[in-house]
Simulated scan of single mutants.
Amino acid sequence: MERASPFPTTEYETRLDRTRERMREAELDALFVTDPANMNYLTGYEGWSFYVHQGVLVTLDADPVWIGREMDAKAAEVTTWLPDEHVRSYSDEHVHSPYDLHPADYTAEVVAEFGLDDATVGVEMDAYYYTAWTHQRLAENLPAADLEDATLLVNWIRLKKTDRELELMERAARIAEHGMRAGVETIEAGVRESTAAAAIYEALIEGVEADGGDYPAIAPLMPSGEFTGTPHLSWSDREFEEGDPVIIELAGCKHRYHCPMARTVNVGDPPREMDETAGIVVEGLEAALDAVEPGVTAESIEAAWREVIAEYGIEKESRIGYACGLGYPPDWGEHTASLRPGDTTVLEEDMTFHLIPGIWYDEFGVEISETFRVTNDGAETFAEFPRELL
């Protein structure tokens, strides 16, 4: 039994070839991947099992090996393209073990089985689910191995999307539009924030006629009232009041590919200052989009935004965007290129970014964002939703 994969095996093989090329450049004999998005990218593995230790061992001359909890091995068999003998699992005694057992002990056994116990092995030191204890136990069990940081090796390969990946982001965009409409239509005075969040979640998971949705890597963010100057709040059970500003940031998700989007809503007529701020955000966002083309740098996109807001006496220090696409909790960002000063990443066709140039004050904030791909002559946004204060 196999679950239908969103990609043909040949696409995974191409990704693996590119990964091995980077490994050779970095003089790595093997790579142990623990970022769930990178695991999915290389093998197709899908499952809510990242709360326990798991990973994919990539070597230079053999199929990758999935290593995880015994009860999750069947998920690896049905979602990955790997042969069953390359699905390896540790017993439940290793999970939160009272016996001084750790999944890294078993991982080290697999590494040694492949003759890599004295090799140079790349590990994702800054990945969310690669813990300090994991690293210590690997080092103790593989004393002759050289464990080298390879945190973003696979992430940078993911930066340029294939046609199939772009198609999934397009499908995610339709789901994002559906979720945003549900939120906007639900928000009104007397309605609880949690009720609006429930409507958004229902729409994101229900999806649209052509596609059901997946769970997004980040919960819908929805600061309201005086808290809209704090962009990463979710929701509470307070009721919206007349005059409240509300920021909605969400993402449609299909086969783990995301299309994020943010919009700002006001309950009733917005005050003049907020309306003017929204106009500045849109003007700056569109200037940034107009600056996109292959060959320009990531920082030049931010510079186009900064030039606009400077005309209004506004300064903003934080980045205005980041590479995005395939993701698992807690983030849909790829942790590579950012749209900010100092990032000299050269944009190439089919890179994808979430452009989110918000302006936040103590009293209120405005976010209006777009996810776009770099085309051969500019930027193409994935979603279609009114680019204005709603």
Rank of each mutant, 00 (worst) to 15 (best):
A4K: 14
P8E: 15
T9W: 08
T10K: 15
R15I: 01
D17W: 00
D17A: 11
T19E: 08
M23P: 01
E27C: 09
E27Q: 13
V33H: 02
A37H: 03
M39H: 00
N40I: 01
E46W: 07
S49A: 12
Y51W: 06
V52F: 13
H53V: 13
G55M: 07
P64I: 06
R69C: 07
D72C: 12
K74N: 06
A75H: 13
E77G: 10
T79Q: 13
W81D: 12
W81G: 11
L82Y: 05
L82G: 11
P83R: 09
E85G: 03
V87Q: 03
D92M: 13
Y99F: 14
P103D: 10
A104L: 13
D105M: 15
T107H: 03
T107Y: 12
V110Q: 08
V111C: 09
F114K: 11
M125L: 15
R137M: 10
A139W: 10
D146F: 06
E148N: 03
E148S: 13
D149G: 00
W156V: 06
I157R: 02
R158K: 13
K160W: 00
E167R: 12
M169Y: 07
A182D: 02
G183T: 08
E185A: 10
T186L: 10
T186R: 15
I187G: 07
A189W: 00
A189M: 12
A189L: 10
E193C: 10
E193H: 12
S194M: 03
A196E: 02
Y201V: 05
Y201M: 09
E202W: 00
L204N: 14
G213M: 04
Y215L: 15
M222R: 07
P223H: 14
T228V: 02
T228D: 11
T230W: 09
L233M: 13
R238Y: 08
H255D: 14
Y257M: 10
P260L: 06
R263E: 14
V267L: 04
P270C: 14
R272L: 13
E273N: 10
D275I: 09
D275Y: 11
G279L: 03
G279W: 05
E286H: 10
D290Q: 07
E293P: 00
G295K: 04
A298C: 15
I301Y: 02
W305R: 13
E307Q: 14
I309L: 03
I314F: 00
I314R: 03
K316G: 00
G321K: 12
Y322A: 11
C324N: 10
G325E: 11
L326Q: 01
L326F: 08
Y328C: 05
Y328F: 15
P329H: 08
P330V: 05
D331P: 02
H335Y: 11
A337Y: 00
S338D: 08
P341C: 01
T344M: 02
T345N: 02
L347G: 06
E349M: 14
M351Q: 12
T352Y: 02
L355I: 05
G358V: 04
E367P: 00
E367I: 04
E370V: 11
F372Q: 09
T375D: 03
T375N: 02
N376P: 01
N376V: 14
E380R: 13
T381M: 02
F382L: 11
